[in-house]
């Protein structure tokens, strides 16, 4: 196995928490605050890993399995994603399905872990989580189907290789729609504004954060790290399609990729600073909108 294939996993494992830091920094900057250090997420993780743990008496091994599954799923996902032209570590036709479904697995266990506590708040969060993800899933896969139609490939590696400046010039509108849909999915799946507010402190309004209320210590570290990895992976997917830097030189591609990720973080930060959270009842409409964008893209590429 050639070394470049390891790029995505290595980058993700190392820099995923950094992305969170950048987002928060941008938010603080836009809001006129100094904000936490860029590396704050790393410090948080280190602190949590050094702690002991307190488990609810209601819980079982499911509660403990949740965070681990979250991290593992995201790690497997990193192995499916390429950087630019460089093939993914484990790429194969149909890998995008595995990508979508390992996240499904992670979500399933996160939700179960939340229900394991018997807390009504966590149940509430779990209920919302499954609702929104059920709607986000078709949007994601239909968007990828549009890309598959456009590039004639069914593996993420092939798709990324097929995306180029040329592709954008010939099928720009479709790819733009796909990118928009993926951005919405990205925001929803990672519990960002306008779907969920990671910074809120009112349990009744939270989605993702409320599900992990009872986790502490290393478990919570895993939860945070898993979330960061997921943010990275879905971000990388979006960037791979939206930023068509395909020079043939892995270094330049990687640089383009890194720039794209940074830009994405900035965009997320900007969105979070400028928008309010949607009412929960409006979120399905947003996700249906994402699915509609994907469908529109499909119509454009099928034509």
């Amino acid at each position: 196995m050639e070394a470049p294939r390891l790029a995505q996993p290595v980058l993700a494992i190392l820099f995923a928490p950094l992305l969170l830091g950048v987002v928060n920094r941008v938010k603080a900057w836009v809001g006129g605050r100094r904000g936490p250090p860029v590396l704050q997420a790393y410090w948080d993780l280190a602190k949590l890993l050094r702690k002991g743990a307190v488990y609810s008496r209601s819980t079982t091994w499911i509660f403990r399995a949740g965070p681990i599954v979250g991290v593992c799923a995201a790690l497997v996902a990193t192995a499916l994603l390429p950087v630019g032209d460089t093939p993914a570590l484990m790429g194969f036709p149909g890998d995008l399905i595995l990508l979508a479904y390992v996240f499904g697995l992670a979500r399933f266990f996160t939700v179960l872990a939340a229900l394991d506590t018997g807390s009504s708040f966590e149940g509430m969060g779990a209920s919302r989580e499954v609702q929104f993800s059920a709607l986000a899933e078709p949007a994601l896969l239909l968007a990828l189907a549009a890309v598959a139609r456009n590039t004639g490939s069914t593996s993420l590696t092939g798709m990324m290789q097929g995306i180029s400046v040329h592709a954008w010039t010939t099928a720009g509108p479709a790819l733009a729609l796909v990118s928009a849909a993926l951005l919405l999915v990205f925001l929803a799946e990672n519990a960002r504004i306008p779907v969920d507010d990671p910074a809120t402190h009112l349990e009744l309004t939270m989605i993702h954060e409320v599900m992990v209320l009872d986790h502490g210590g290393p478990d919570f570290a895993f939860v945070l790290y898993g979330a960061a990895l997921k943010l990275w992976v879905l971000g990388a997917l979006l960037v791979g399609i939206a930023v068509p830097v395909r020079s043939g030189d892995p270094w330049i591609d990687a640089a383009g990729f890194a720039a794209g990720m940074l830009a994405l973080a900035v965009v997320v930060g900007a969105v979070e600073s400028s928008m309010a959270r949607l009412k929960l009842l409006r979120v399905p409409q947003l996700l249906a909108g994402a699915a509609a964008l994907s469908a529109l893209a499909l119509i454009l590429v099928l034509r």
Binding site: G104, V111, L112, L115, D116, A126, S133, L135, L140, L142
Partner: peptide, 28 residues
């Protein structure tokens, strides 16, 4: 495309349904 869309929706909803079934019966 219909297959992809409906399978995705089915998958999401099935996960919702079985997290409910398993979670409510066995957990808490």
């Amino acid at each position: 495309i219909a297959v992809i869309g409906s399978l995705a929706l089915i998958g999401g909803l099935a996960a919702a349904c079985f997290s409910k079934a398993y979670g409510m019966v066995f957990l808490g």
